[in-house]
């Protein structure tokens, strides 16, 4: 009897765990079924090579590159800002700051990631853009620069926290070797610790990129809704995520081509983040084995 009860419980717990597999399968099925229906009407060649994205107009074009360029541009700006700052923070905290400081500052920094992104969007639109406009006269009201920078602020803790963990995990004997040779803390950090912790740092950067690519509200609010193939950070663009929001806010018939565009856009986004997450998972596994 007791055995039977134990088995039932185990099966129940297992079923709960399997829900996570169902979620993944569900996401992949939903995205691919709608995307396949989409590609029945739009050639995949056009999708990948067209340089315009106008599904909501009468002259329809479906060049995903246009949206992708918006996503990559805003993410690039965020990363260019967040990685040097985040990495500097991690080095400062793990090598320079007193131990007690580390304990208080890490949760404080993580607060940056806890702020809802719609709030950051408001920040970008109403504070950062007007501020930047005072010395970049041509800056449009919607632009990828302030959206990217604010997104950068949001992802700082992703970079700093994981990188700091990686630096912290480097054996102390290497620090002693470097100091024993007369290194300054800076030389120790950049010549010894950062290379030794490189896999962990790379993981943190990949996760930050993945986060930036999938970020929605900041770019939907502050970067605009004008699909445009450009690398100019001062003009409005539209990201994949912002497009999905734009369509969702409107009245689009289920089963229409417009409806399916958001799944085609979604699967593109999913593939990118999936690849990034998989790579980071692989590196992390290897890295864990290295130190244990």
């Amino acid at each position: 009897m007791r055995k039977f009860k134990e088995t039932v419980i185990e099966k129940g717990l297992q079923a709960s765990a399997l829900v996570t597999i169902a979620v993944t399968v569900g996401i992949i099925l939903v995205l691919s079924i709608e995307a396949i229906l989409f590609f029945k009407e739009v050639s995949i060649i056009d999708f990948l090579t067209d340089t315009q994205w106008t599904p909501l107009y009468t002259d329809k074009h479906f060049g995903i590159i246009t949206l992708l360029s918006g996503t990559l541009l805003t993410s690039f700006i965020a990363i260019i800002f967040a990685v040097p700052v985040g990495l500097s923070i991690s080095i400062y905290i793990s090598e320079y700051a007193p131990r007690s400081f580390r304990k208080t500052i890490k949760p404080a920094l993580e607060l940056l990631a806890a702020v809802p992104t719609v709030v950051y969007g408001f920040f970008a639109l109403t504070v950062v853009t007007p501020f930047l406009q005072t010395f970049i006269p041509g800056l449009a009201g919607f632009n990828s620069l302030s959206a990217g920078l604010v997104m950068g602020i949001m992802i700082i803790p992703f970079v700093s926290s994981l990188s700091e963990d990686a630096l912290h995990a480097v054996p102390n004997s290497l620090r002693e070797a470097a100091y024993g040779m007369g290194s300054t803390k800076l030389q120790n950090a950049f010549r010894v610790l950062v290379p030794a912790a490189s896999s962990g740092i790379i993981v943190s950067i990949i996760l930050a990129i993945s986060r930036a690519i999938g970020e929605t509200m900041i770019v939907a609010i502050a970067a605009g809704q004008q699909p445009r193939l450009t690398i100019d950070p001062t003009v409005p663009v539209e990201t994949i995520t912002a497009y999905i929001v734009q369509v969702s806010l409107g009245d689009v018939q289920h089963g229409s081509l417009e409806y399916r565009t958001i799944f085609a856009a979604g699967i593109t986004l999913f593939i990118f983040t999936f690849l990034l997450n998989t790579v980071s998972y692989k590196i992390r596994k290897k890295f864990r084995e290295k130190y244990e």
């Binding site: 996401i27 939903v30 995205l31 996760l207 993945s210 986060r211 690519i213 999938g214 970020e215 929605t216 995520t241 999905i244 929001v245 969702s248 958001i262 799944f263 979604g266 986004l269 999913f270 983040t273 999936f274 990034l276 997450n277 980071s280």
Partner: peptide
């Protein structure tokens, strides 16, 4: 690591 908007879809 899946973007939240994908959960929306």
């Amino acid at each position: 690591g899946v973007p939240s908007i994908i959960y929306g879809l």
